[in-house]
């Protein structure tokens, strides 16, 4: 009985196979809970409504006829964007004889948006 007993090795093998497969299943389950969360987070972090809102208000501000009022409103838009929506917003308008071109830049650190809007 001094020799090494090498019977029942298949039971040891089965033990290893079952436990390793369960371990990999645990990793799969672990990953599947994170998948739904990261997608939903990515959607809620993208500032879709902020970009649309600031774009609309910039275009609306461009149609103010009084120059002093227009400058004041546009300055307020930049200050409010920075302090309430954490976004650096800059815009300027150029006019040709027929159209006005508004360069809109938006950046909140996560998403950047640039557009040249042309009035009809």
């Amino acid at each position: 009985m001094a020799r090494l007993n090498d019977d029942a090795q298949w039971i040891v093998l089965m033990g290893f196979i079952v436990s390793f497969s369960l371990f990999f299943l645990a990793i799969l389950i672990n990953q599947s809970t994170v998948v739904g969360q990261t997608t939903a987070e990515a959607v809620s972090e993208f500032p879709k409504n902020d970009i649309r809102g600031v774009r609309e208000v910039i275009i609306a501000s461009e149609s103010i006829t009084d120059t002093t009022e227009k400058e004041r409103v546009q300055r307020e838009i930049k200050i409010l964007s920075l302090s309430r929506q954490n976004a650096a917003v800059d815009f300027s308008a150029k006019s040709s004889t027929t159209h006005t071109y508004i360069d809109i830049h938006y950046n909140n650190g996560v998403a950047a948006y640039n557009e040249t809007y042309t009035t009809s």
């Binding site: 007993n5 029942a8 039971i11 040891v12």
Partner: peptide, 10 residues
């Protein structure tokens, strides 16, 4: 024989 192996496996 090999009962210890079995216990170890479990």
């Amino acid at each position: 024989n090999g009962q210890l192996y079995t216990i170890e496996g479990v």
